[in-house]
Design a protein around this nucleic acid. Structure first.
Lengths: 153, 153
DNA sequence: CGAATATGGTTCGTGCCACGTAGTACTGTC
DNA sequence: GACAGTACTACGTGGCACGAACCATATTCG
């Protein structure tokens, strides 16, 4: 079925799906690879990414990550234990907490992000500039229509 | 920075990475969505996929999934408990086991695969035929160069 | 003001995922 | 027939995510 990878003909319906799925796994693998040596989950990495620009409360963080509050508590516990993030009391709201990167956490975040860029970027090694540009535009168009409405009709 | 989703200009280096990462998460989300109602993890789904064409031993299955033997035992335990797969003694090798889909498991596998195709396919709703074809070709080219050699070079 | 309610977080228990380290049962080899 | 290797399982660890129950504080409203 999945025969000529380079041929211009015979692009069936399932091929798009196949390619997208395969790609997504490759990207995830690349992302995971980028965390080698840091022993971080993708969720942790995403959290660090969020915290690069913000100092949110746990709830806000949870929203950014698409997690429940309780999941976030655990996530924070583990990250805090590793010295990546710190919880500080919110001055305005005594129930709340603000989460921020520690210095170490920031270092890790930067390192991982850099490596991710390299790893994921490396995936496009086979493409030349114009193809890369083409790809970005296609993906942007694709992504622009996601999350809008239901898909199953 | 990540502004005009449709503009032809200003495709920077990080944009490819961004787009790929975002896409990969969307695809994973779509895959997960496809399992709604079945309460399956992606690993379980992958396993069902492998078992569609084969009746491997646990070890072989583990290799296909990139897991250790012990992880696979647990995976099988849970899947078996749900009536998705069955372990049968290997006639030639009394240590070994052959894993196969149950009727119910096959049904689930087919259903999920179909829904995956729909969900993932639905992601490309914004693209027309020619764009879809373009995308497939770009992705194939991209994928053809993956897993070959080191990437960080 | 004070009671009712909503919100931010945590705790606890559940289940899954993946691993490593034994162990058991068998296979193949010498 | 001993011995190394293989197939699988058992057990314990740790992470991820969830829901329900639960404080403590905020907010709303009578």
């Amino acid at each position: 079925m999945a025969s000529d990878p380079g041929s211009a003909e015979g692009v069936a319906d399932g091929d798009v799906v196949d390619a997208l799925v395969q790609l997504s796994f490759e990207v995830q693998a690349a992302l995971t690879r980028a965390t080698d040596g840091h022993d971080l989950s993708l969720t942790q990495v995403r959290m660090l990414g969020v915290l690069r620009d913000r100092t949110p409360g746990a709830r806000e963080l949870a929203d950014h990550l698409g997690l429940t509050a309780s999941s976030t508590t655990g996530l924070l516990d583990r990250a805090e234990r590793r010295g990546l993030v710190a919880r500080a009391p919110d001055l305005r709201d005594k129930r709340a907490v603000t989460v921020s990167l520690t210095t170490g956490g920031r270092e890790v975040a930067l390192d991982v992000e850099e490596r991710m860029a390299r790893e994921v970027g490396g995936l496009t090694a086979e493409l030349d500039e114009s193809q890369r540009r083409q790809l970005v535009q296609l993906l942007r168009k694709l992504l622009s229509g996601v999350g809008a409405s239901g898909s199953t009709g």
